[in-house]
């Protein structure tokens, strides 16, 4: 098997908000590990998953670790493909300015087409 053929397209689909459940945090842990395997990684945020990227998270009062700075650090792991669904943002009255990291905003059709191109899709 050539080296190129062992690189797969991994997509992580995040649909849940942070803190209420552990999924967002543990999804991020998988993403960081996947980066070490030199795979083609993309992250998608849709539905309440877009709240994971909301600026201004202050978790002191719930005595829980604020893991939102990690999204900014993804760049350092060569994870640069972060996609947000346009309709999910709009449904929550948010714009790109409300997010703590640079993302590519795609409409639902473009996002669906991107999903179709993946080799492995992991949802959280």
């Amino acid at each position: 098997m050539s080296e190129e053929s062992s690189i797969k397209k991994f997509m992580f689909v995040n649909r849940k908000p942070p803190y209420g459940t552990v999924y967002a945090l543990e999804a991020l842990e998988v993403v960081l590990i996947t980066a070490a395997f030199d795979q083609d990684v993309s992250l998608v945020f849709l539905d309440d998953g877009v709240y994971q990227l909301r600026k201004g998270q202050q978790t002191k009062g719930i005595e829980t670790k604020n893991f939102s700075p990690t999204y900014r650090a993804l760049d350092g792991y060569d994870i640069e493909k972060l996609y947000v669904e346009k309709e999910s943002l709009e449904a929550r009255g948010l714009t790109e300015d409300d997010l703590l990291v640079d993302v590519m905003v795609l409409d639902r059709a473009a996002l669906g087409a991107l999903m179709d191109q993946q080799d492995v899709v992991l949802s959280f």
């Binding site: 797969k8 991994f10 998988v30 590990i33 795979q39 492995v120 899709v121 949802s123």
Partner: peptide
């Protein structure tokens, strides 16, 4: 480790969650 999950994604033909 979590690497075992990523490896399953790479090695297996299909990953079902």
């Amino acid at each position: 480790g979590l690497g075992q999950l990523v490896e399953a994604g790479i090695q297996a033909d299909r990953l079902v969650t």
